[in-house]
Amino acid sequence: MSAEAERKTETIPEWKREEVAELTDFVESYNSVGVVNITGIPSKQLQNMRRGLHGSAELRVSRNTLVQRALDSVGAGFEDLEEYVSGQIGLIGTNDNPFGLYKELEASKSPAPISAGEIAPNDILIPEGDTGVDPGPFVGELQQAGASARIMDGSIHVTEDSLVAEEGDEVSEELANVLSELGMEPKEVGLDLRAVYSDGVMFESDELAIDVDEYRTDIETAAAFARNLSVNAVYPTEQTAPLLISKATGEAKSLGLQAAIESPDVVPDLVSKADAQLRALAAQIDDEDALPEELRG
């Protein structure tokens, strides 16, 4: 062993090298690898979340420097994930697709109270209504926090929806107390996906947010379009043959009625139509003497 190699062994302890090697293996074993923010998640909850991934994805937490070193050594584009490595993060790997991963992680988030000094992750709104709190100094606290509040019917009411913090604001001690008193949990706690590198493509979280309802609507629209085309172009399919039959029947009937065709299928409708016309005409006649009793308005 050379002196130089010896020195390197000293500066990079064995456990670190093993950790980097394991992280490297981890990154290489999945099609998609992402960086998740785990700030503020208590370790016990983190364990639960890890288990909650059901084997569809794996979470790995390590020192940021080691994570960066592993990403660097894998290369092939994964090193681009390094810019998302800051604060408390973990690596998440999956063979599922990144949109599915994002959906799963979002669905597993749970609401949590926000503490003083934290940054509001979104606008915080105190809704109009009875707070259920007895009259007392809380009215002033609410007002100080920026909510319109007064005492009504023996309790403290918020009189209108009140914006008390905007996204990005630091939450003050007073506001944190007020929200806590109201039992509001404005935070969503969970594995917060920052970015995923998947099959050569980097996806940031806002690109991964898909609106399932929109896709459902698209399916409905596509199905309706196909149905319309099938009927309008008279290309019958199993699904649209009944519609075409109904349409043809309706057309024949319409023609029968318009042309007053004396066909047994049409005549009952013609009789109805004649009666309807009679009534419609009678309705225009003001002089009741001109009408038989049954037609008088």
Binding site: F99, K103, I210, D211, V212, E214
Partner: peptide, 12 residues
């Protein structure tokens, strides 16, 4: 990819 993920939750 997005379509596949989205349709997972849609009853086609």
């Amino acid at each position: 990819k997005a379509l596949v993920a989205a349709l997972e939750d849609v009853d086609i």
